[in-house]
Amino acid sequence: MKQLTYPFSPEAVRELKVGDMVLITGKLFTGRDAVHKYLHDGNKSPVNLKNQIIYHCGPVTMKDKKTGKWTVTAAGPTTSIREEPYQWEVIRDHGIVGVIGKGGMGQKTLDACKEYGCVYLHAIGGAAQVLAEKIKSVDGLYLEEFGLPEAIWELTVEDFPVVVTMDAHGNSLHKEVENSSKEILKTVL
């Protein structure tokens, strides 16, 4: 089990390799479909994402009526491939060093990871409670107008469990499994 601790950097994520099981401690910013399209369209990010990790997640959030404080009650990853058209540009223009999601991403993102020093970290899809437990505080909410699941949530996490499935050296576990299963598929069809 490896540790990835805030502040993050391209140098630190280049140390990570496909298959590494990693615990992240520090900051995460959620961002999914609406945010990626927004950033891709050239809009300025409401928060500086340089050397940050973006998390493909639309959390279930509750606001305390008395204190106005937010808590995240469920926070698993959403399918990342939907952001494939946008992700490489967001990595390039905003200096993101990590992308957390599920299902992996395509060649464009893999190339961007290699070129700019970024890594794709696979969280366990559907494990919304285990992952929400690792969120220690909600530090910010941006682009609320996209709806709460689609907004950017600034979170502090501790020992957030992920698996490196695309590293900064051009390796992708998703590609490997796809190729090996394809060979087996040929024999059973």
């Binding site: 298959g19 099981m21 997640c57 639309g58 959390p59 279930v60 009650t73 469920a74 926070a75 698993g76 959403t78 366990i124 899809g125 559907g126 494990a127 919304a128 409670q129 285990v130 929400a132 437990e133 699941p149 469990p161 698996v163 576990l173």
Partner: peptide, 27 residues
């Protein structure tokens, strides 16, 4: 990584029931 994933899945099932909160955020 497969057993790692299945262990987290088990923890999640237990935790969601204990906390009475959604198993997955996509309800």
């Amino acid at each position: 990584t497969a057993s790692y994933a299945m262990n987290i899945i088990k923890d999640n099932i237990d935790l969601a029931k204990f906390k009475s909160q959604p198993l997955c955020q996509d309800t």
